[in-house]
Structures are given as structure tokens and as C-alpha cells.
């Protein structure tokens, strides 16, 4: 969709609350979640918002903690945009977009650089203070791009971390007290521990069309609304955990406040929907086992 008239039609549709697919400005497309989709990962989830599809897989490994935080684990984020997802992602086209979204996810889950006030209990990832801890790799992959990619990635991240099973470690002190103690991994899924993912926020991306805030823009609508884009990380209780304005279009303070109010209203609803789907699937799996 490129013509000026079509773009104006889409923008006005959003502003008037009657979009091409019949949604109002603050409606999300149908959300689908599927857990444990990558057997090689410790936790994974696939999230579909309309035609947008992303996959997030979490893998853990035993490694050394960061010097400044000896009693904390480390969480890494990366996002890859597969060229399968969109014709615009071929070659090196999507490297910046992937890095941007990974940074956004990182900030929304971990908070500041020192990960103070983050939504994950990093101390739970410590194995031996100062020498061994879990490194958690959160890898996102965009499979089909049709707008709201960061929203989908954050939802899949929350679900994948809910699905995450960290193997139990057995620490046996070695004979020589100078040596490092030996660490053995217990492969039994019965003994695996999960991480508390209930405080992880989801990202609500808001756009402005003719002065009205709107969420969940499709790729066509994104092309029609060149205005500012605001990513708001909201947790299940409606608290704002992060805020990031994307693009260089200016934004009025009143508009931002209106957007924040909408995000605060939608965030808990999204979290609830994610929780409901996760619990149903985890429960189903337990019964199956």
C-alpha cells in the first residue's frame, strides 16, 4: 500500500475508530500463544498477533557472573529478523531493527544498567557466589512481520520465561579446597526449577493518528502513520516499567499522557490474557505427563 489516498484513508480510519479490519483504535488483533515449541530450548513460546508471528526461545548455561554483581545471574537478549518475515529484511536490512528491539526488551525486563528494580529475581540465578551463575539467553526470532513486533516479542518473552525450566545443580566440593567445587547438572525435568515471571511487563506500542492514540498497527497502518511511536512497558498491575519514544517526530505532552493512560489500561489486560493461555497450556502438559 503506497498511494497517498490509501494512506490517508488508513490514518483517518484509525482516528475515527473504524479500521480496515473493523477494529477500534484501542483494540488488539487476536492473540495466540503456544508454549514449548523448540525442543532444544529450556523454555520457548510462539506468539501470533494477527498475521505477525514471533518466536522466543530461552536457553540457560552455567558461566561466571559479572564482576560487579558476583551474586547475580546474567540475562542476555537478542532479536533476529529472519528475511522470511518480510521483503524489507533481506541482506543487512534488519540488523538495526533487531538490535533496537533487543535493547527495548532488555530495558523493559531488567530495568536500568544495574538491573535494579528489574522484574526478574537475578539473585535466584546465582549458583556459587562470585564464581558460578546461570546465564540466561533470551533469543527472539521474527517469523512474519505485520506490525506490533515488539509487543509480540515482549509477550512471547514473558511466556517463554514462564515456560523456562532451569535444571537442578548438584554442587560437590572437590577434595582440594583450593579448587573450584564440581557442578553437576540434573537432567530430570521433575527436579527443574522455574523462574518467577509474573512481574515481567509487556510492551504496548502506541501510535498517534490525527491526534488520537492507537495500538497494534498492522504493517500497512504503520506505513500510513508516520507520527511518533511510543513503546510503554506495563506490568500486570498497570505500573509503567519503561517508556521509549521511537522516531524523530515530535510529541505533545498531553498526547503522551493520553497514550500512557491507554497503555496502563491495556497492559494488565494483555498480561491477564498471556497468563490465562500459559496456565492452560502448562496445566494441560502436567496432566499429560
Amino acid at each position: 500500500m503506497t498511494s497517498k489516498g490509501q494512506r490517508r484513508y488508513a490514518a483517518q480510519g484509525i482516528a475515527l475508530g473504524c479500521r480496515a479490519d473493523g477494529r477500534a483504535g484501542k483494540d488488539y488483533r487476536p492473540l495466540q500463544l503456544e508454549l514449548a515449541v523448540v525442543p532444544q530450548a529450556n523454555g520457548s513460546a510462539r506468539c501470533l498477533i494477527g498475521a505477525s508471528e514471533v518466536l522466543v526461545a530461552v536457553k540457560v548455561e552455567v558461566n561466571v557472573p559479572e564482576e560487579d554483581f558476583p551474586d547475580q545471574g546474567v540475562v542476555h537478549f537478542s532479536v533476529e529478523c529472519s528475511p522470511c518475515a518480510s521483503a524489507a529484511f533481506q541482506g543487512r536490512g534488519a540488523l538495526d531493527l533487531g538490535a533496537d528491539m533487543a535493547g527495548n526488551l532488555r530495558r523493559s525486563v531488567l530495568g536500568g544498567s544495574a538491573s535494579m528494580g528489574g522484574s526478574l529475581d537475578l539473585k535466584a540465578l546465582c549458583i556459587i557466589s562470585g564464581s558460578r551463575c546461570w546465564h540466561v539467553h533470551v533469543d527472539g526470532l521474527v517469523i512474519n512481520a505485520d506490525g506490533s513486533l515488539l509487543d509480540a516479542l515482549s509477550i512471547a518473552t514473558r511466556a517463554a520465561l514462564t515456560d523456562l525450566q532451569i535444571p537442578r545443580v548438584d554442587i560437590s566440593p572437590s577434595d582440594d579446597p583450593e579448587d573450584e567445587p564440581e557442578i553437576e547438572l540434573d537432567d530430570d525435568p521433575e527436579h527443574a526449577a522455574s523462574l518467577d515471571a509474573s512481574r515481567i511487563p509487556v510492551v504496548v506500542t502506541l501510535a498517534e493518528a490525527e491526534g488520537r492514540p492507537a495500538v497494534d498497527l498492522t504493517a500497512d497502518e504503520e506505513a500510513s502513520c508516520p507520527g511518533p511511536r511510543v513503546h510503554v512497558a506495563v506490568n500486570g498491575r498497570g505500573c509503567i516499567c519503561g517508556l521509549h519514544k521511537q522516531g524523530n517526530a515530535p510529541l505533545q505532552l498531553e498526547a503522551l499522557q493520553e497514550m500512557l493512560a491507554l497503555a496502563q489500561q491495556l497492559g494488565p489486560r494483555l498480561c491477564k490474557a498471556v497468563n490465562a493461555q500459559c496456565t492452560a497450556q502448562l496445566h494441560g502438559r502436567r496432566q499429560h505427563a
Binding site: V38, Q40, A41, S44, L55, A57, V58, K59, E61, S78, E80, S82, P83, Q90, H137, D139, L141
Partner: peptide, 15 residues
């Protein structure tokens, strides 16, 4: 052609 292996797809994470 372009070919890619996702970092999480193998038993050991590898990019």
C-alpha cells in the same frame, strides 16, 4: 539463497 540457523536451535547455544 540465504540460509540461517537460529541461535537457540542447537543443543548448545551458538550464533
Amino acid at each position: 539463497c540465504e540460509f540461517a540457523i537460529a541461535a537457540f536451535s542447537q543443543s548448545e547455544r551458538k550464533q
